[in-house]
């Protein structure tokens, strides 16, 4: 009985040290979006993106407060919050997924590694399975990720007569997060 217990202790201790994984996180990631049309410049930036990533599993999450998107035009920001994203009812958007080719990223070696992100994007309370490509960049041992992808506003229940006119049907989303 005692031997068994010792063995368990031994295994527990070593399994952790062998498979030690690292959690990288940031609260100051950046997400920009651009839904400009030829008629109107519609772009905003959010510098308070909360993101976490685990190196071994490639698991990655983003959590974004809608109200933290800053527009140049304040009225546009109000309309974005009240009429389109309904941020008082649905304050957050998030992404939960994995970097599917995380094994190809060498966290110990500086460089730029192409990455494939697969997961669930939730905007305006609507979940959509998404898959996009980007980069994992290792610089001085700390990772950053960057990526650009497009989302169709209608897919997330974001509707209004201006969409397709003054507002583009698709928004281009640019992600830049530097982890600690």
């Amino acid at each position: 009985m005692m031997n068994k217990a010792t063995l368990v202790l031994f295994l527990v201790t070593f399994s952790f040290s062998l498979h030690a994984q690292k959690l990288f996180s940031t609260k100051t990631g950046q997400i920009r979006f651009n839904a400009s049309s030829p008629l109107e410049q519609i772009a905003a930036i959010n510098n308070q993106v909360d993101s976490k990533m685990i190196d071994k599993t490639g698991q990655i999450v983003f959590s974004v407060l809608i109200k933290s998107f800053k527009f140049e035009n304040q009225l546009m920001e109000d309309h974005f919050n009240e009429n389109y994203l309904e941020s008082s009812k649905i304050p957050k958007a998030d992404f939960k997924g994995f970097i599917s080719n995380i094994a190809s990223v060498n966290f110990a070696k500086d460089g730029k590694y192409p990455a494939v992100f697969i997961g669930t994007l939730t905007i305006h309370g609507v979940q959509q399975k998404v898959s996009t490509t980007g980069d994992v960049i290792i610089a001085d041992g700390t990772p950053s990720i960057s990526g650009v992808f497009k989302i169709k506003l209608a897919d997330y229940g974001i509707v209004g007569s201006y969409i397709g006119g003054k507002i583009a049907n698709e928004a281009e989303v640019t992600v830049n997060c530097k982890y600690q």
Partner: peptide, 13 residues
Amino acid sequence: SAVAQTTDLFKLQ
């Protein structure tokens, strides 16, 4: 903290 193999970022977030 939170580096265990079983860490689920989805739950954590």
